[in-house]
Amino acid sequence: MTLNLDRYSHLSDATLMLLRVVTGAFLVHGTWDNVTSSERMQEFVVFLTQNGFAWPQLMAPLSVYAQSACGGLLVLGLLTRWAGLVVAFNFVVAVVMVHWQQDFRGWWPALVLVLLGLHFAAQGGGRYALDAVLARRRPGSRS
Rank of each mutant, 00 (worst) to 15 (best):
Q50E: 15
R142G: 09
L78W: 12
L76C: 03
L73I: 02
Q57M: 14
V92N: 13
V96I: 15
A66C: 13
H29W: 11
D6V: 05
D33R: 10
H99A: 00
V98C: 02
L113G: 07
T23F: 10
A25E: 05
W107G: 09
V92E: 09
R127G: 07
T49E: 03
D6A: 07
A66L: 14
M17P: 06
L78T: 06
G52C: 15
R20T: 05
G84S: 05
E43K: 06
V28L: 05
F91E: 01
G77K: 02
Q57R: 15
D6G: 07
L116W: 09
V28C: 06
M1S: 10
A129M: 06
A110K: 00
R138C: 03
L85H: 12
R127I: 09
A14Y: 02
N4S: 13
H99N: 01
S37I: 07
N51K: 15
S38P: 10
Q50P: 05
L48P: 00
P139G: 08
A88I: 08
L118H: 01
S37H: 09
Q101I: 13
D103G: 10
D103H: 03
G77I: 01
L5C: 06
T36R: 13
A83F: 01
W82D: 03
L5E: 08
Y65N: 11
V35F: 04
R20L: 10
G106S: 05
V46W: 11
H10F: 12
S141A: 09
A135V: 02
S141E: 08
T36M: 14
R20V: 00
L85F: 15
A122R: 02
V35A: 04
V35L: 04
R105S: 10
G124C: 07
S38E: 12
G140V: 07
R105L: 14
D13S: 08
L115G: 14
G117Q: 00
G124V: 04
L16Y: 01
L113F: 11
R138K: 08
V21A: 15
F53G: 03
A122D: 04
A83W: 00
R20C: 06
G24V: 01
T2G: 13
G77Y: 02
R81G: 02
H119Q: 07
G71A: 08
Q102N: 15
N90K: 11
L76T: 05
V75I: 09
L3H: 09
V96H: 14
F26W: 11
S12H: 00
S141W: 13
G24R: 03
L115Y: 15
V93H: 11
M59L: 07
V21W: 14
A69N: 07
Q67C: 08
L130Q: 03
Q101Y: 12
A132R: 12
W55T: 10
V86Y: 09
V92C: 12
A25Q: 02
S9E: 11
A94S: 06
V87D: 00
W55E: 05
A54L: 08
R105E: 10
F91S: 01
V133L: 12
W108Q: 15
T31E: 04
A110E: 01
V87W: 00
R142E: 12
V21L: 15
R138V: 07
P61E: 04
F91Q: 00
Q101A: 15
F26Q: 10
F44V: 06
Q42L: 13
T23M: 12
V21I: 15
V46M: 10
Y65K: 09
V92P: 08
R20G: 03
R105T: 09
N51L: 14
